[in-house]
Computed example of a mutant assay.
Amino acid sequence: MLSYRHGYHAGNHADVLKHLCQLILLEKLAQKDKPFVYIDTHAGAGLYDLQSEQAQKTAEYEQGIDRLMQLQSANPHICRYQALVGEYHQQHRYPGSPELAFRLCREHDSLQLMEWHNQEVLNLKANFKDRRNVHIHHRNGFEGLVALCPPKPARGMVLIDPSYELPQDYVEVVESVKAAQKRWAGGTFAIWYPMLAKARDKSQTMLDGLSQLPVEQVLNIQLWVGAQPDDFGMYGSGMVIINPPWQFDEQVESLLQVLPTSLSDSPDAGARCQWLRNTQG
């Protein structure tokens, strides 16, 4: 939806979950010397000012990155995330998924960033001006994903993070992933989605569609910071990972033991990690 601006939500609990998963996936790819590609279908501005009018209006980062930065944890993924985000946090900024990817990619890796919002793509271009191996596309991310597959190099991951302001987004996620996966069977697909109030949550149909794709593994990760409301609001979020790397599920499980109580004081906060499809046993 062309009205969505992520600046209102930057650094919230959903970003924490999404970017921790992204960090683990990119570090897994970087363990081999071979180059890889990172594709972001809904890149946004890439970098956010937490003192901006947008961020201050909602202050969602207070229950997200602000709380996590206060956490003393031995979890290696949380420690690396804190170190990476910390330098931005000290300047009251938060790095979006493109910025994190750029920091985690190497000189021979490449980034393909897509954004359809007219102003956000200008902000993205300004934030990534003169950066190496970064390609920015002003286009619909669902259509662009299919068009870019199979990418070169053929190793890599895609992050799909639409606004879900339109019910059609849930349908387009499944359709675009199905078409892209046919062209790029070896790619890892990471799909973020909101967990909404009972009257508005449309994620189950999407999850059912993703679980029926002709792939070996589909992992569903969920984190919620309170009870599900009846009528309005986002109480949590999820990440679906198609073709997750080896031991990724175990690493995420270690995160989920820490995150609910770190990001929320609610007794209803919680998390789960479950296979929607797993033909490997």
Rank of each mutant, 00 (worst) to 15 (best):
Q217V: 14
R277I: 07
L256A: 10
L47R: 02
A74E: 15
E120S: 00
D208T: 13
S266C: 08
A147C: 06
V158S: 11
K178L: 02
K57V: 13
G238E: 00
C105L: 13
F232Y: 12
H89C: 08
D49W: 04
Y8K: 13
L166F: 11
I160A: 10
V146K: 01
V121M: 03
H42N: 10
G226T: 05
H135C: 04
Q228N: 06
G186S: 15
F128I: 10
Q181H: 07
G11L: 11
S203W: 12
L25I: 11
T261F: 03
G86T: 08
G7M: 08
A199I: 15
D161E: 05
W184E: 07
V173K: 07
Q222P: 12
F189N: 00
A271Y: 08
D40M: 10
I191A: 01
P153Y: 07
Y61M: 13
N140V: 02
A197W: 06
Q168I: 12
W246Q: 15
V240Q: 03
V174R: 10
Q280T: 07
E143T: 07
M69F: 06
W246Y: 15
H77W: 14
F36G: 05
P244R: 03
I24A: 09
E107S: 15
L100P: 00
H108T: 15
A10R: 03
D249L: 04
L17S: 10
M239R: 11
Q90S: 14
R5D: 10
P167F: 04
H137D: 02
A83P: 04
I24E: 03
T205Y: 04
L213N: 05
K34T: 00
Q247F: 15
A179I: 11
I241H: 05
G226P: 04
A147T: 04
Q82I: 02
L2G: 02
V215C: 14
Q112C: 02
G144M: 09
S3G: 11
L276H: 10
D231E: 11
L124F: 11
A74Q: 11
M234D: 05
S3I: 08
E62G: 05
Q72M: 15
W224I: 08
A14F: 09
F128T: 09
E27Y: 00
P76H: 03
K152D: 01
W192L: 01
L100A: 03
A185D: 00
C105V: 12
E115T: 13
T58K: 15
F142P: 00
P267D: 13
L210F: 14
L207S: 05
E107L: 09
N220E: 13
Q247W: 10
K18F: 04
V225S: 02
T58A: 13
V218L: 09
Y61F: 15
E115S: 15
H89L: 02
L219V: 06
Q217L: 05
G7I: 01
G46L: 10
L2N: 10
D265H: 11
M1V: 13
D265M: 06
V252T: 05
I242R: 03
L263G: 06
E115L: 09
G46V: 04
V134M: 04
G46A: 09
V171K: 12
D33S: 06
T205W: 01
F248C: 02
V218F: 06
A74V: 10
E216P: 00
A269E: 03
Q257G: 07
G238H: 01
L145A: 04
S97P: 06
V177M: 13
Y193F: 14
C79M: 12
S262N: 12
P245L: 05
A197L: 10
A227G: 13
